[in-house]
Computed example of a mutant assay.
Amino acid sequence: MPKSPSPHGLVVRDLHELRELADVSALFEKIWGSTPGSSPMGVEQMRALAHAGNYVAGAFKGGQLVGASVAFFAAPVGEVLHSHVTGALPGHRAGLALKLHQREWALERGLRRITWTFDPLVRRNAHFNLAKLGGRPVEYLTSFYGAMDDVINGGDDTDRALVAWELDHPAAIAASASHSAPVAIPADAVTVLSVRDDGLPAVGRDDATTVFVEVPPDIEALRRIDPGAAKAWRLAMREVLGGLLAEGARVTGFHDRASYVVTRDTTA
């Protein structure tokens, strides 16, 4: 795939060379706060994936690597790309540039969907994945990666939401044009999970068709300063969002940069 220019002075391109892949591994270590040699993706893994025709790309600004993404083909065969790791330094908008490049790459190969996982407690990632890109969480995965002791995860359980990004959906098309698709919210929507004044989670009534599931403002800081509160949030999000998805409810958006919008299927 040719180099993809960005309006923010970024160039996104496929990567194959060992030197470049070593730079990606080092960048991931920096972003995740991993110990040396414990990058989320090793050079050998990326080399093998790239050589086999999978997606390994980097975002450069002024010749400097500021973001990278690694993805591989997934089931159903010929339809899905699974984006395993994407990391970007703040202040460059490299995360968005990489996702849009990844979407073009997938469409050129006839794929219809990109999936990835993210921590549903990280508010900025939820806003990016849902409001900016138009992806939708479709499954709640409890302790998906087991224990991870890097700076970002801080020893917390690695619960993840699996996002499905339908590449021809109007929300994804809007994202490719740098627009966010509006979310319709009924007047009788209620908040089922919210942030109390002391920062702890509060679970409320959940009998409405559409509910808000609020995300704590900064779970990563909370893990450092109050691990007990962070654990309470993990369990509350697992119970509420995990329970809603398990019963067949749909996440339809992310409201006010703070809350998942979840709608139950009333036709069942």
Rank of each mutant, 00 (worst) to 15 (best):
G53H: 06
M148D: 10
E44K: 12
G134F: 03
G243P: 04
H101A: 15
A202L: 15
G146W: 05
V151M: 14
L18N: 11
D188N: 14
T267N: 12
A184I: 13
E166R: 09
V215M: 11
K231F: 10
Q64E: 15
D149P: 01
E20Q: 13
L245M: 01
E239C: 09
T266F: 01
L121E: 00
D156E: 15
G58F: 01
A74Q: 04
A94I: 05
G95K: 02
A50S: 15
G204T: 08
M237S: 03
G9R: 05
V80L: 11
P120A: 02
R113W: 12
R205H: 11
G155R: 09
L10G: 04
T252Y: 04
A236C: 09
S259T: 11
R113M: 14
P186R: 09
R224D: 12
V24A: 03
D206N: 14
F28I: 01
G42T: 12
S34L: 02
A74W: 11
R205D: 15
V163A: 08
Q102W: 01
I185E: 09
I114F: 08
Y260I: 07
A22N: 11
N153G: 05
Y260E: 06
W105V: 00
A131F: 00
E104R: 14
I152V: 12
D119S: 00
D206A: 15
A246Q: 13
G87E: 00
F254G: 00
V56R: 02
R13M: 04
S143D: 15
H255D: 14
V163I: 15
V195K: 06
D150S: 07
G53P: 03
R224W: 01
P90Y: 06
D226H: 10
S194N: 07
V192R: 07
F212D: 05
A171K: 04
E44A: 13
D157G: 08
L200E: 14
E79T: 09
P217D: 08
A229C: 06
P201K: 05
T266S: 12
A52S: 12
F254I: 07
P227T: 05
G243Q: 03
L65T: 01
L121N: 07
A172Q: 05
L222M: 15
S6D: 14
A258Q: 13
R124W: 04
L222F: 04
P90F: 10
V163G: 00
W105M: 06
G63P: 00
S83Q: 08
D188Q: 05
L245G: 01
S4M: 13
E79G: 03
K99Y: 12
L98E: 10
K30C: 08
A208N: 00
D168W: 11
L21E: 03
A71P: 02
H255K: 12
E29W: 10
D157N: 11
H101D: 13
A232R: 15
K61S: 14
A208W: 02
H101N: 10
R250F: 09
N125K: 06
V192K: 03
A249N: 03
P7K: 11
D168T: 14
I185G: 05
K231P: 01
K3I: 13
P36T: 06
A268E: 08
F254M: 01
F254S: 02
A94C: 04
A181N: 00
Y145F: 12
